[in-house]
Amino acid sequence: MDTMMAKPNSLRGRQADTSAPTWRDELALVAAPARLCAGVLLVSALLAGAASWHGAQQAAALAQAAQVRGAAAGRYQNVESEKQDIAIYQPRFVELQAGGLIGDENRLAWIEAIKSIQGTRRLVSASYDIEPQQALVFAAPMALGDYQLRGSRMRIELGLVHELDLFHFIDDLRGAGRFTVQDCNMKRTDAPAESIGVARLTANCTLLFLTLGNAAPAKGAP
Rank of each mutant, 00 (worst) to 15 (best):
R122I: 07
N185Q: 15
R188P: 09
G145M: 05
S152T: 06
W110K: 13
R188I: 05
S125K: 14
A135E: 03
G100K: 05
G197T: 02
R121Y: 04
K115R: 15
P192H: 07
G145S: 06
D172V: 07
I130T: 09
P91M: 09
D104C: 07
G159C: 10
F138L: 11
V198G: 08
G177H: 03
K187T: 11
E95F: 04
V124G: 09
P192C: 04
P91T: 00
N106Q: 10
F93R: 11
Q148K: 03
H168G: 14
R122P: 00
S152V: 03
E157H: 08
P91K: 11
V198K: 15
M142G: 04
E105V: 01
D165H: 10
I114W: 02
D165F: 03
A193T: 03
I114K: 08
D171S: 15
G103F: 01
A87V: 04
L108F: 05
F167I: 13
M186P: 00
V137P: 01
R121H: 12
R121G: 03
F167H: 12
L108H: 11
V94I: 07
L96I: 03
V124M: 14
G197I: 01
E105Y: 00
Q148D: 03
L96P: 00
G159K: 13
K187Q: 10
Y128W: 14
V161L: 12
P132H: 05
A203R: 11
G175P: 10
L158V: 09
L166S: 10
G103D: 02
R200E: 00
T202N: 13
R92T: 00
I130E: 08
V137D: 06
G197Q: 02
F169C: 09
Q133Y: 01
V137L: 12
L160N: 04
R150S: 11
A109L: 09
I170R: 10
D165P: 01
D146H: 04
A199G: 06
A109I: 00
M186H: 09
R155G: 02
A109C: 07
T120M: 12
Q148A: 12
L173V: 04
R155P: 00
G103R: 03
A176C: 11
A135F: 02
S195E: 00
V181N: 13
L96S: 09
V198P: 13
V124A: 14
C184A: 14
Q133E: 10
I111W: 10
A191Q: 11
G151E: 02
R174A: 07
L201N: 01
F167C: 07
E163D: 06
P91V: 00
G99H: 04
A191P: 08
V137S: 13
I88V: 10
E112C: 04
V161E: 07
C184Q: 13
A113D: 00
P91Y: 02
Q97K: 14
Q118C: 10
R150V: 07
H168N: 14
Y89K: 14
P192I: 01
L173Q: 05
W110P: 07
A199N: 10
M154V: 06
